[in-house]
Nucleic acid binder design. Structure first.
Lengths: 340, 340
DNA sequence: TTGTAGGCGTTATCAC
DNA sequence: GTGATAACGCCTACAA
């Protein structure tokens, strides 16, 4: 068994109250001599307070949780890096979990988080934009609320809660405008699952750009994938079989864009000479590929850091919803050909 | 405040003892009627046991921890995915942390883990093969041992502890042999930091393959990088400037290989026509690149799952060190040219 | 400046 | 079959 506060008290020849005061830097005065004695005892026994006991007493933990869709995707990995690093810098540990968008798993996590009395929760991926999902999520959030715990979304959830994210629509719009400026008029849009909020937002932005250029939306040129490498490859390969009429492919995510470039080449066409390809993300992954992907850079690490900062800061006005919007930036590679 | 066992007892009109028995499926008999009453009360209040109280009482947690070097690297992301999924399937949560190989941070984590009385610890990345690091790590492990906590390494740590990993030397050897079989006789070896155990193991394997072919090791053709995308790019670019005499580049890690391919192309050479490139890893990342990378496939997800399984299984013979070795597999892409 | 004692929510040992 | 009660390790009024 590890040492308890009582062992330290005995070793130092003082009461446990005094030891507690030293540990917590209590405002209650402790003479310098006693403090020294206690500190010596603590060091000698290598005593570390039992966090469960502290939590039980204070109903207060230094643990936050991060729910990611797919940790093997550097997109979430980069968020996770920012979150866990920022957290540990404040002495806070992070539960990290992978849901793969399985709603049941997500709810199981919520239950455990509630039991562990975590201090804050970060929702990493976009939620499903379905009435069912929104309802369940809202219920879970209600439960958390009864304790004073903050929840921050890093992607749209379909319900209005505190968030630290980018403007997904504006980001996609900017990317699309880049293609349009370079003369592309027929663009295949490859998005993720069509019931995910983030996916919908980005698609909206794309359509807005088309509208700006007075172009009609051709629904045949909008397809959805399951966001996996192989899934995107398959879907785009089969679209290519139908003798495409488009000059560019807009992928709403970098990994999909990389996979799509592979599919285009395997079909016997060149990027960007025959078909241009762009993505959204900007992770190193896509910046060392061939060709280098033109994409929108999302500051994922910074988003993670900021989320933790907000999470650990009590809200001044609890009823006001906080929204931090990080800027994104066009990052030109050489996967796009100018048509004029 | 959340409800406590006492609230449930009141609601059901029984004692807290009885409630506890129901919650824990105690062997102590409880009449069917009482059980029903209690279950109803639990459901009504949506009661969830306070884990801190349970832990305090039982000195037993259902939390494990995973230390990763770089979560934004899909290599660790894939491990993390396997670990967190396998854990939650057993009702266990996972602390996940990113150290970036900063030893101080690592020690801070150990301290917190100790306080949280976690149940098991998984070391994700290779340790530094320095006396200092080995000593500190051994000390930390000693502390954990005083409680009965398992520690499992997913990469060599320089000290002998339970592990679930691949045979790094054999894997590199096999990759090198593939190059040698295809006629390559002068190969540039690009490894990670030279004081990291994993890096050293893989280099050993490479040298062993050379020996098999009666080739001398040319130390000028062995270089080390910091394992970052940009770092590898820089280093290899400058080596290329010196008019290389090699026909292939062996990278001890896929991301580095991708970055190296970029450097080779930017220098004006073709992969694989002018220079062949291989890696180690086998994540999707490198299987959708251009050209597709020839590499050794490591079952990272499975390694994570297995590690959790072992972690949560008490050792039958505590003094016997357990070693699970996962097989790796050559995955041929088209980044290698046959020279004969 | 120091110490005593009660209680946080559980589980386990008793007694009934 | 059921229920008091002590104890886990800590913090914090309240006393001294």
């Amino acid at each position: 068994m590890a040492y308890s506060i009582e062992d330290v008290a005995k070793e130092a020849g003082v009461s446990i109250t005094t030891v507690s005061r030293v540990i917590n830097n209590s405002s209650h005065a402790v003479s310098e001599k006693t403090r020294k004695k206690v500190e010596k005892a603590i060091k000698k026994l290598d005593y570390k307070p039992n966090i469960s006991a502290q939590t039980l007493r204070q109903s207060y933990t230094n643990v936050i949780a991060f729910i990611a869709r797919d940790l093997s995707d550097a997109y979430y990995g980069e968020m996770a890096r920012g979150i866990t690093e920022a957290a540990i810098n404040r002495g806070v540990l992070s539960f990290v979990c992978n849901t793969g968008r399985k709603t049941d798993d997500e709810m199981r996590y919520h239950e455990l988080f509630n039991q562990y009395r975590i201090r804050g929760l970060i929702l990493g991926g976009g939620g499903f934009n379905t009435a069912q999902y929104r309802k369940t999520l809202a219920e879970e959030i209600e439960k958390y609320k009864s304790r004073d715990l903050r929840i921050i979304a890093l992607a749209p959830q379909g319900i209005d809660i505190d968030s630290v994210m980018i403007d997904n629509a504006a980001t996609a719009e900017k990317m699309a405008e880049h293609l349009l400026e370079l003369g592309h008029r027929s663009v295949l849009y490859v998005g993720g699952p069509d019931n995910v909020c983030t996916v919908q937002e980005r698609l909206k932005g794309y359509k807005k750009a088309l509208a700006k250029y007075n172009l009609l939306v051709n629904e045949d040129l909008i397809i959805h994938t399951d966001n996996t490498w192989s899934g995107a490859y398959e879907v785009v390969s089969s679209v290519l079989e139908e003798k495409p009429s488009f000059t560019a492919i807009f992928c709403d995510n970098d990994n999909v864009a990389l996979s799509v470039m592979r599919a285009v080449k395997d079909y016997g066409l060149r990027v960007p000479e025959d078909i241009s390809v762009v993505g959204i993300g900007g992770l190193p992954n896509s910046q060392y590929s061939s060709p280098i992907l033109t994409t929108m850079k999302i500051p994922l690490y910074e988003i993670g850091v900021k989320a933790v900062e907000r999470l650990l800061t009590p809200k001044e006005f609890p009823d006001v919803i906080e929204r931090f919007v990080f800027p994104t930036e066009l990052q030109e590679g050489n996967s796009v050909k100018a048509l004029k």
